[in-house]
């Protein structure tokens, strides 16, 4: 059965599903020279786990009778990158573009996304990947939830919505929790929740024609007072101290393994 949220006036109210997307550099294309990453000419893409989140969001659309909106904060190429989400089924995009968002610093991005969410009508749920493909920090969802005073559930493996309540299975290291949370709620998902779907050609061609709203930090009344809370001092590829020794025989391998295994 499809579920419809009933407002105080008894009127049927659709609720929207928001999927937060982060554009990340194509990690396979990053080359290292002198321990430094070469990022020029590395194209941006939608992170794989965000594609899973989008797929999970698409399935909730029916239950909430609302739109699937992709929300993202970043720099210029985002207008192009977001086409991936629109091709894969999002109905519209809301983008906050600003050079200050280049580093994707968690606290600032959370502030921006929360401000945008506060302006978007009828949001029932916002979905994030459990961590971005590049930094894997996993803070933004919780920060957004805190700013908006929403409940949060991390590491969702399954989401069902019925009667204005979300039933969410949270996957932890040693157990799973079955939780019941009222909407609106902020959720992060694990990759297993859904396989990302390959978008169809017509989906891709229509992506550019779907509605897109562009906001700046000024539109959201966000000023950049003070610096970032975290400063990156260095960013270098780790030096491998491994021997990298090619061995010639199974005999040798067995000997090494037995020696390294130690007493048991």
């Amino acid at each position: 059965m499809g579920f419809v949220v009933v407002s105080d006036h008894g009127k049927e109210e659709a609720m929207n599903i928001v999927v937060a997307m982060k554009q990340v550099p194509d990690l396979k294309m990053i080359r290292i020279r002198d321990r430094r990453p070469l990022l020029e000419d590395v194209p941006f893409m939608m992170g794989e786990i965000d594609r899973s989140a989008l797929e999970a969001g698409a399935e909730l659309r029916e239950a909430l009778k609302g739109k699937l909106i992709v929300l993202s904060a970043g720099t210029e190429p985002l207008e192009d990158t977001v086409k991936e989400a629109l091709a894969a089924g999002a109905d519209e995009a809301i983008l906050i573009l600003d050079e200050a968002l280049r580093d994707g610093e968690s606290a600032l991005v959370a502030q921006v996304l929360a401000a945008a969410l506060a302006r978007m009508p009828d949001v029932g749920i916002i979905l994030f990947g459990e961590g971005s493909a590049d930094n894997y920090s996993g803070q933004v969802m919780a920060r957004v939830a805190e700013i908006l005073s929403w409940p949060q559930v991390g590491y969702a493996r399954e989401i069902r919505i019925e009667g204005g309540v979300a039933q969410i299975t949270r996957s932890l290291e040693d157990c799973e929790e079955l939780l019941e949370v009222p909407l609106p709620v902020a959720v992060s998902v694990v990759a297993e929740i859904r396989q990302p779907k390959t978008p169809s050609v017509t989906g891709i061609l229509r992506a550019g024609r779907k509605p897109k709203t562009l906001w700046t930090l000024a539109d959201l009344n966000i000023g950049l007072n003070g610096g970032a809370p975290v400063r990156t001092i260095s960013r270098l590829a780790p030096v491998s101290s491994r021997l990298g020794q090619v061995i010639g025989s199974v005999d040798e391998l067995v000997e090494i393994v037995k020696a390294k295994r130690g007493p048991s």
């Binding site: 194209p43 192009d80 990158t81 086409k83 991936e84 091709a87 390959t198 978008p199 169809s200 050609v201 891709i204 061609l205 992506a207 550019g208």
Partner: peptide, 12 residues
């Protein structure tokens, strides 16, 4: 971007 995505769809 569209061509890139169509190419990726075919590749996948």
């Amino acid at each position: 971007k569209e061509q890139e995505l169509i190419q990726r769809t075919a590749r996948e």
